[in-house]
Each structure stands twice: as C-alpha cells, then as structure tokens.
C-alpha cells in the first residue's frame, strides 16, 4: 500500500506542472509575469533563512550599488530602504521602459533580537546577502542534565 505513495506524489507533480504551464501563458505572450524586483505594493522581494545562531536574508536589488541602499537594525527590527535610479542613456529614443525606478522601503520584524554590531551585508549579482547573528540572549543554549 505504502509503496504506491510515489504515484500520489507523481499526481501532485503533474498538477504542479499544469499550474506552471498556465502561469507561463502570460510569459509566452511576452508580458512580464511576477518578475519585477518590486512587488505590487512596492516591497522588495526577500527570503529569510534561519539557522541556530543566525538569520540569513536575501533581497533582490538588481542594478543597485551599495551607496543606493540603507540598512538599519535595532533589536529585532530591520529596515531596508533605498533608491534606484535609471541610467537613461543620452541621445537614445525610448522604446520600452518596464524596469521600475524610484525609492522603496521595507521593514521586517525578525523572530529574535539581532546582534547589530556583527551584522554583515554583501552585494553580489544584484542580490543583497545579509547575515544577522542572533544576540546572545536569543541564541539556543545547550542544557546539561546534572
């Protein structure tokens, strides 16, 4: 009975494929679909990962350099703001401008306090990588049984 589980898994896989094909229909008509680095409400896209003593964060910031970004941390409150300015080339006619410009700001309440002195930020290939070590009080502690 339980060896048939893979068939159920396959069934769901096929359903995923159908959904993906439907989602991709707009891509086939050459309209951008869910690809803007800003979401509809003007938020940056962000991923948060957690390990025992640190948070890892990834944010999409295409075409921005480090001076254009502002990161603030206080306790478990994180705020990222910035501005993207388009490098409109001189003397060119414009055919299409889909890439968004302007200012943005997003704040997060992290699940735990962060040791703000040891936060590291790295910018690579249009993605901002943040390493946020948890503060001592929020770190997991090994308890030895006496």
């Amino acid at each position: 009975m339980f060896t048939r589980f893979s068939d159920i898994d396959r069934l769901f896989g096929t359903m995923d494929l159908l959904r993906q094909r439907l989602d991709n229909m707009s891509t086939d008509y050459n309209r951008p679909y869910r690809s803007s680095w800003l979401m509809e409400d003007g938020f940056l896209r962000a991923n948060l990962y957690q390990s025992g003593d640190a948070f890892e964060m990834r944010l999409e910031v295409p075409g921005m350099d480090k001076d254009a970004l502002d990161i603030k941390i206080q306790g478990n409150y994180l705020e990222i703001s910035g501005k993207r300015e388009q490098d409109v080339p001189d003397g060119y006619k414009v055919h299409k401008t889909e890439r968004l410009n302007g200012t943005f700001s997003r704040s997060f309440t992290l699940p735990d306090d962060v040791d703000s002195a040891r936060v590291e930020a790295k910018l690579k290939d249009g993605v901002l990588y943040l390493t946020l070590p948890k503060s001592e009080a929020a770190k997991p502690r090994q308890i030895t049984i006496s």
């Binding site: 707009s26 891509t27 050459n30 309209r31 951008p32 679909y33 869910r34 690809s35 803007s36 680095w37 388009q86 409109v88 080339p89 060119y92 006619k93 414009v94 055919h95 299409k96 401008t97 889909e98 890439r99 968004l100």
Partner: peptide, 8 residues
Amino acid sequence: VAPAVDIY
C-alpha cells in the same frame, strides 16, 4: 519568468 526590460 520574463524579465522586465528597457529598450533604447
């Protein structure tokens, strides 16, 4: 996904 583009 289709990336957003600018064309000049």
